[in-house]
Nucleic acid binder design. Structure first.
Length: 207
DNA sequence: CCGCCGATCTTT
DNA sequence: AAGATCGGCGGG
């Protein structure tokens, strides 16, 4: 993996509904305090359109929690879900807008042993990171990673690497777990991938 | 395989 | 008071 390079910040400076499917196949990596790397290929995402989107945490304007989403693209927005799990987003769109892409599932690539240690209930590879809370636990992402620069030339604790074109086809459908904005088909995933969450229950169509 | 429910706590 | 979730449990 010597030729990996972080994604260009300008690549993220667009509408999240455009950015989201193009993140499929990219690799999210985290380096822990001991220099160990855990990473996974992105196989499922959701776009959130900030102040224009009633499902977005940024819908009602900036707050201390959502401040990073209103900043420049290429940073990590991390939030606590149901008081228990961490979930992470790639901030995109122009500085001053609050667009973001929720990372919903990864196919584990590096550091799989460490992922099993962080996910003691997981029995199989596909249980490690097949959901937004699971993947943060698998990589060890917590609130202290909030704001991390994903595009730095020198890889920081959390980095987003450009991926080879995914090859397979992309499906899209409604976002999971939202009530407002439930009609918008802004969830995207790799067709047939075993690491996608809710594979059997939600139908999809080609974009 | 499917559906229900509880855990746990931040944010508004 | 609700929530961008997860996993255990029970039923079919």
């Amino acid at each position: 993996m010597a030729d990996r390079r972080p994604v260009e910040r300008s690549f993220l400076e667009r509408d999240p509904v455009e950015v989201a499917p193009s993140l499929l196949g990219c690799v999210l990596a985290r380096t822990d305090g001991s220099g160990r790397v855990r990473s996974g290929r992105i196989v499922e995402v959701e776009a959130y359109r900030g102040e224009a989107d009633p499902a977005s945490h940024a819908y009602r304007g900036p707050t201390p929690r959502t401040r990073v989403m209103f900043g420049p693209p290429g940073h990590l927005y991390v939030y606590r879900s149901y008081g228990i799990h961490w979930c992470c987003n790639v901030v995109c769109g122009a500085d001053g807008t609050a667009a973001a892409v929720l990372i919903r599932a990864l196919e584990p690539v590096e550091g799989i042993d460490a992922m099993f240690r962080s996910r003691p209930r997981a029995r199989r590879d596909r249980d490690l990171a097949s959901g937004p809370g699971k993947l943060c636990a698998a990589l060890g992402i917590t609130g202290s990673d909030g704001g991390a620069d994903l595009c730095g030339a020198t890889p920081s604790a959390v980095t987003l690497f450009a991926g080879a074109p995914s090859g397979g086809s992309v499906l899209q459908g409604p976002r999971i777990g939202v009530s407002a904005g439930a009609e918008e088909p802004w969830r995207f995933w790799l067709a047939g991938n075993r690491h996608v969450s809710a594979r059997r229950t939600v139908p999809g169509s080609a974009p």
